[in-house]
Design a protein around this nucleic acid. Sequence first.
DNA 1: GCAAAAGTGTTGTGTCTACACCCATGT
DNA 2: ACATGGGTGTAGACACAACACTTTTGC
Lengths: 234, 234
Amino acid sequence: MVDPTTLPRPRATHVALAVVLQVRDAELQVLLWERARQPHAGSWSLPGGFLSPDESLEESIRRHLADKVDVRELSHLEQLDTRGAAARGAEEWQLATAYLGLVPADVDPALPADTAWHPVDRLPQLAFDHEAIALAGRERLRAKLSYTNVGFALAPAEFTISQLREVYAAALGHAVSATNLQRVLLRRRLLEPTGARRAPGRNGGRPAACFRFRARKLEITDQFAVLRPPQPGG
Amino acid sequence: MVDPTTLPRPRATHVALAVVLQVRDAELQVLLWERARQPHAGSWSLPGGFLSPDESLEESIRRHLADKVDVRELSHLEQLDTRGAAARGAEEWQLATAYLGLVPADVDPALPADTAWHPVDRLPQLAFDHEAIALAGRERLRAKLSYTNVGFALAPAEFTISQLREVYAAALGHAVSATNLQRVLLRRRLLEPTGARRAPGRNGGRPAACFRFRARKLEITDQFAVLRPPQPGG
DNA sequence: GCAAAAGTGTTGTGTCTACACCCATGT
DNA sequence: ACATGGGTGTAGACACAACACTTTTGC
């Protein structure tokens, strides 16, 4: 092998993409962007763009997303994976790093005209392999809802258990029992009561207590560690 | 935004790295490579190298590793993360994608002179941020030992429960009970008896039954799904 | 009072750890 | 016989899902 400083190395362009998810209208939706230019002009794709030499990957995806949604509304951002793609851009050699971004259910960011939310369960035709990436983002979210506190990133800052139940049900794609949701999240000490109560609707009903997530950054809350270290006597 | 085909985009070199782990001498060890050239000449780093335009990321890391360990001995390979690094190579703009590779405990690949195994718990000074990457690889492995069948990638093709216990203990970094290990892995149907028995050692003892992993590719075996879909009646 | 919504009590099931005990072999 | 290492039986702790029941409101 030779000294890399003397031999020009092949260079690729690099793109950062994001699967930005939000629960809207009781459905998990993803932010898509209608491509104005080739390749795949007119079809939908994940938002993102080219990396600049002076920024990190995370800075880059935040910068590109800032055109679509206010960055302050991104409550969580984590990396999915990186794929090289000979077939990605036909003529240029390109790599793409995908991120998962989450937006709380109670905000409705103003979007540019070329951008819209789409239910992840009914995606339109997507450019490149973006459908697979979007679905991978959904699965990552679903898994993490079970063993981390990611819920904080989808829920409003303060909420009733019923509201939270709707958010979880939409994200997980199946019915969720408010009873058990409350017990699991309280037992794990993810939630704390704010003291506030929400007045009932027109039909009456008991006023609901309000809760918040104790932490607003990602934590592992269920150490799935089977085979844990031995603890004599217990 | 402009048509990318008309405007030259900034391009970066891209490196694929691997955290290759194996249980050796009852310790989890990582394959390191002593750098012969700048930057960081003389210090240790993770094996890897530059990406070529005609290959995928995984092909690239397998090609670079082939110089160090026989590729057939890599029982598992998965992506960790990608980091941009302004500070990575001083003068050139570079991104690095890290992989986690695993080697079964019963092989001892011939290594080139500049390459050696080091216990992950006692790493020498590593170049760049490779220490953080190596530790991230170890944590990924530890987590997956709990909820997947990755054990297959660290264990020999056929083994006794005692041998497997040593492998798990080394990888997890704490004592593991053979009793409970056997129960968990059998209950989850990860292991099956081969029918063979292993003769006892000099001191006698009951002959041990031999087992193998049912599958030799990664599977999720513990759906950590708390909040699972409702199942009326049970 | 009655419907509606929130929240609690209770029971059953399954998984895991710990530890006692039994089994098969060498010396 | 007895030490050594392999393997099973069993009991307790815990987390979870399901569902019945109670509480608090509007009408």
